[in-house]
């Protein structure tokens, strides 16, 4: 199969198409996923191909997520779309108290194979309720997996892994990645396993760990760092839970320095967890300051100018790397 240029948006469309097309016991629920094609155009014409199983719902995130739980307990694999990750708050009871618990609390009698797809992230001036990347909200919830791929191939392969996983999976799609185009080989039905990080660029001076759009920002920073003679290693976590800490530890054992990059809050964030696990496991190899780059502890302002001061950027990543190396 030859590689072709394809967008992140199209890759998820293809994965959705594959999942719905290969198994009649798969349902896709969400708001405006029929004629509108999904708020960000991901599902496009799928409602025509699978008219009974692509179901456009009322604006009822809390309850259509519950509908997904009921469907999954009675024999369906379910994909839902929460239009903006900020709206996850409305679905939290069904995700946290129900979907996440069911396999454990019912003694393994049944599970909830649900993928909650959700467009996330800022940099678009949407303001406090339409801009968040909230992966960290789910980190403390046992039973839930969190996946946030940054590349086109991973978007396709991780999505299918999420669909065929037997647990609720929060699948985070950064809005600024939708138009990302890459040469990709999307083998029909090929899955990328969850819980495996990817080393995007090898380097010996410092380890940068990120996921989702943070990886795109870190990639931009790499060229500038190289110009300054800094050879950074960049790791894309791809999935936050399960977390592939081994790959990070291996890298930090080599570089001795760690910089984490995320779009969510630094306080209680992904970087905090990664850094702590690194300290617990390979403190002896650390010989630089550990730096976390992420969102300031404020809501995300609507002003595009103000937003830049709050969210991570190429500049703040470079600054973070230099801070790590300076100690």
């Amino acid at each position: 199969m030859r590689k072709e240029k394809i967008s992140y948006r199209k890759a998820i469309y293809k994965a959705l198409d594959y999942a719905l097309g290969s198994d009649e016991k798969t349902v896709f629920l969400g708001e405006d996923i029929s004629a509108y094609g999904g708020a960000f155009g991901v599902s496009a014409d799928l409602y025509k191909k699978y008219p009974t199983r692509v179901i456009s719902t009322p604006i009822s995130e809390g309850s259509f997520t519950g509908v997904a739980v009921g469907l999954s307990m009675t024999g369906y694999r379910v994909i839902t779309e929460i239009m903006f990750m900020d709206f996850m708050t409305l679905a939290m009871d069904q995700i946290i108290n129900h979907a996440a618990n069911i396999h454990y609390m019912y003694g393994g009698q049944i599970a909830c194979p649900i993928v909650v797809r959700t467009p996330a992230g800022g940099y678009r001036g949407y303001g406090p309720s339409h801009s968040k990347a909230m992966e960290n909200l789910f980190m403390s919830i046992p039973g839930v997996k969190i996946v946030a791929p940054s590349s086109v191939e991973d978007a396709y392969g991780c999505f299918l892994s999420a669909v065929y996983d037997n647990n609720p999976v929060i699948f985070v799609e950064h809005k600024l990645l939708y138009n990302l185009e890459e040469e990709a080989e999307l083998q029909s039905g090929k899955q990328v396993p969850l819980g495996k990080a990817r080393v995007i660029k090898e380097g010996g001076d410092v380890t940068i760990v990120s996921h989702s759009y943070g990886v795109a920002l870190a990639k931009e920073a790499l060229a500038d760092l190289e110009a300054d003679g800094i050879d950074a290693e960049l790791i894309d976590l791809r999935s936050i839970k399960p977390l592939d800490i081994e790959t990070v530890i291996e890298s930090v054992s080599k570089t001795g320095r760690l910089v984490t990059v995320e779009e969510g809050s630094i306080f209680g964030g992904v970087g905090a967890e990664v850094a702590c696990q690194v300290i617990e496991n390979c403190l002896q190899y650390i010989d630089g300051r550990i730096v976390r780059v992420g969102k300031a502890d404020v809501p995300i302002p609507a002003s595009l100018t103000a937003e830049r001061f709050v969210l991570p950027s190429k500049g703040s990543i470079i600054e973070g790397v230099k801070k790590s190396l300076s100690w």
Binding site: V27, I55, G62, S63, F64, T65, G66, V67, A68, V69, G70, L71, S72, M73, T74, G75, Y76, Q94, H98
Partner: peptide, 9 residues
């Protein structure tokens, strides 16, 4: 909603 999901199923 879980019951509604079972009914949809």
């Amino acid at each position: 909603p879980i019951a509604a999901g079972a009914a949809l199923s």
